[in-house]
């Protein structure tokens, strides 16, 4: 039930860790460079499935005008802002107060109208055409409870998107040893490999909350082009699209 003081789906240690980095969210060359680099293939996955789901022309200027979207765990708004530019009426929540402050300020400076709130999904009372929670599930203490709260915010027939790190030796090597220790892309201790989620586990958890997983897709780093690209392999980092029964 609604609880404003102690959100149940975000652990205090996790929130504190991200708050320390919040100011750097929008710096293309800063701490969040990997997230900025990850954005184009992620957004392409979202956009293509959304265009199909809602029968919209993805090349039109604001293809998703008239639809509502909830971004759970929005951080500094790295995905909320693009979604607003693509036409969605965006509500974006995060349990970190500083994240919301940074996101709000940034959207305002860019002239974007986004409803940012410091909240967790179970405290909201309305439902949305689209709900997404990207690179969040590996940070919450109870994934099942979290997904159930997220799923409740989705209208029947609505589109769900999630993304996370797979629990494989490759992801351990890349995300923790590579990104955190060798490349120093992310501050050490950002990720706990044991909390990474296999696609089969993600799919099963979604089915338990009434969301049918429809499509999985991975990303891989292309060092020569210095960018992340979409790929079929889910070994490291992947996204999922699902539809709520209804």
């Amino acid at each position: 039930m609604a609880s404003t003081t102690t959100p149940t789906t975000a652990s205090p240690e996790e929130i504190a860790r991200f708050q320390a980095m919040a100011d750097a969210w929008w710096d293309a060359e800063g701490d969040f460079k990997p997230l900025h680099q990850l954005n184009p293939p992620r957004l392409a996955f979202l956009r293509d499935h959304l265009a199909e789901h809602f029968s919209r022309d993805a090349t039109a200027p604001r293809p998703f005008e008239g639809l509502s979207l909830l971004d759970v765990g929005c951080g500094g708004g790295l995905l909320s802002e693009p979604m607003a530019r693509l036409g969605f009426a965006v509500t974006a929540i995060d349990a970190g107060e500083k994240n919301i402050g940074v996101a709000r300020l940034h959207a305002e400076q860019g002239g974007l109208d986004i409803d940012y709130r410091c909240a967790t999904p179970e405290t909201l009372d309305r439902q949305f055409d689209v709900v997404m929670t990207m690179e969040v599930i590996e940070h919450v203490p109870d994934a099942d409870a979290f997904l159930s709260a997220v799923g409740d915010r989705l209208k029947p027939g609505g589109a769900f998107f999630g993304a996370t790190l797979n629990r494989t030796p490759q992801s351990f090597a890349l995300a923790i040893v590579g990104a955190e220790y060798i490349l120093r892309w992310l501050p050490r201790g950002t990720h706990d490999w044991r909390k990474f989620v296999r696609p089969s586990e993600f799919a099963a958890a979604l089915r338990r909350v009434g969301i049918a997983p429809k499509s999985f897709e991975g990303v891989r780093y292309a060092p020569l082009r210095e960018r992340w690209e979409r790929c079929a392999s889910l070994e490291v980092n992947y996204a999922v699209y699902g539809v709520r029964a209804g």
């Binding site: 060359e29 184009p40 956009r47 993805a58 802002e81 693009p82 693509l86 210095e226």
Partner: peptide
Amino acid sequence: VDAKRLGLDLGHGSVLARYAR
């Protein structure tokens, strides 16, 4: 155009870096 169709900020450093490179 690619950035616009992804909803990205056309003036963001990551977009401009791609052109420069």
